[in-house]
Structure formats: C-alpha cells, structure tokens
C-alpha cells in the first residue's frame, strides 16, 4: 500500500511538471524568428572556408574540431575504464557460433560491409557520414564475427592487441594533424590549407578526410573492444 501511494504521488508530480513544461514551451518563439547568427555564417561561408560539401562535417572537424578531440577522449576514457574493470582473462570462452548456412552467407557479405564502412568514413566531407558513423559500421563486423563464428574466431582474426594499436593510432593521427596545424597554419587543429584540392573530389577539404579516417579507426576499434570485454565476462559462466 505504501508503495502504491508513493507511485501515485510521483506520477502526479511528474504529470504536473510535464504540464508546466508544455505550457512554458508553447510560449517560446518559433525557431524561424530567432536571429541565427553563427548558423547563417556557416551556411553562407562554410563551403568557402573549409572546402567540405557536407556542412555538418565542416562544423564537426573544422569549426569545432577541438570539441571532437574531447569527444574522442571521452570514448578513450570509457574504453579504458571498461577494460580496466572487466578484463582478467585473455581468451574468452564463447559459443561455437550459428549454423553452416549463416556462416557461409556472412563470409560472402563481410567484404561488402567493410567496404561500406570505409566508404562512409572516407566520403564524410562529400556525403552523409563521417568517422563516427563509419566506425560504428566497422565495429559491427567484429560483433557479427563474435556472434556468428564464436568469439574465439574473432580473437584469432582481430586480437585485442590489434584493436588497441588501431585505437591508439587513430587518436594519434588526430593529435598529429592538430599539431601540424600549429606548425603550418599557426593554430591548433586549424585546417591545413595546402592539402585543399579541387572541391568535390575525394582528397579535398584540407585535413578533414584524414581526421575522419583517424576517428573512424578509433571509434571502430573502441566499440569492438567494449563489446569484446563485455562478452568475455558474461559468457564465462555459461559455457
């Protein structure tokens, strides 16, 4: 009974808060009426400043590149914490995988998944996508391997050491490009102008494609490490 009273009370308070929020939000002016300032600047001059057709990538890796560096540091911290907490045993004991049909089908599909991941990473400045999105696709390959072929196969193909090297290499690529910005252009993570080629080609937009490749490898390896650390602890008792 006490629990029911508490539940009813909390629900009533939340409903009142929801009503108050809705009333306040309905008083806000529409977004079109606001003075947009920085957004107007980016829409007007973004292509001219960075050479990147995709304005969202231009914001992420040029105007706010320092913020993206912090963001990848957050991923690095999360991966480090998870590995520190969970990893005790190197070779996980997991299932033997799924049936023969699934294994053969995935064997045909895997190169195309990898190709799509690399396409999304390298065309981040031309079309929707970028390092973070393509990195998640690359991490999915490792996860699918663990599920379909069993995690021992994933361990043999992409050992945790390889993943660690890839992740650290991605972070170092980002930092080196940032430091090269100091030497050549005079500011940390400033877009390297001498790399800019004709707009719309694959190698254009200064240092943005290279940062994308670094971030892609970093995110893919990081998420694969997270998944790998989690299964090796949870499957340990079952098999």
């Amino acid at each position: 009974m006490n629990k029911l009273v508490k539940k009813t009370l909390i629900t009533a308070v939340l409903a009142a808060a929801a009503f108050a929020l809705y009333y306040n939000f309905s008083l806000l002016p529409g977004y079109q009426d606001l003075e947009k300032g920085i957004s107007d600047y980016i829409i007007t001059y973004g292509l001219h400043d960075t050479g990147s057709l995709n304005l969202i990538t231009a914001v992420l890796y040029d105007y706010r590149a320092f913020d993206s560096l912090g963001e990848s540091t957050v991923i690095f911290g999360a991966v480090s914490g998870i590995v520190l907490i969970l990893s005790r045993k190197m070779l996980p004991v997991s299932s033997k995988g799924l049936s023969f049909i699934v294994k053969r089908t995935l064997g045909i599909m895997t190169p195309f998944i990898a190709l799509f991941g690399f396409y999304v990473i390298t065309h981040g400045h031309l079309s929707p996508g970028g390092g973070f999105q393509g990195g998640v696709i690359l991490a999915a390959i490792s996860i699918i391997f663990s599920i379909v072929y069993g995690s021992a196969f994933d361990y043999r193909r992409y050992s945790p050491q390889t993943k660690t090297v890839l992740e650290t290499g991605g972070a170092l690529t980002f930092l080196v490009i940032g430091l090269a910005g100091i030497v050549m252009e005079g500011a940390f993570l400033k877009n390297l102008g001498f790399l800019t080629a004709e707009r719309g080609t694959l190698i254009s937009a200064g240092s943005i494609p290279y940062i994308n490749i670094g971030v892609g490898f970093k995110v893919g390896a990081g998420l694969a490490i997270i998944f790998y650390s989690m299964i090796q602890k949870t499957f340990e008792e079952d098999f």
Binding site: K36, I38, S39, A58, I75, F132
Partner: peptide
C-alpha cells in the same frame, strides 16, 4: 538549408 549546428551537437551527444 536546414541548420547544421544542432545536428553536429547531437552527433557529439549521441557518441
């Protein structure tokens, strides 16, 4: 164009 800044901020938030 739609506003690119909230989309970039949201990408940061999702990660």
């Amino acid at each position: 164009f739609n506003d690119p800044v909230p989309q970039a901020l949201t990408l940061t938030g999702i990660v």
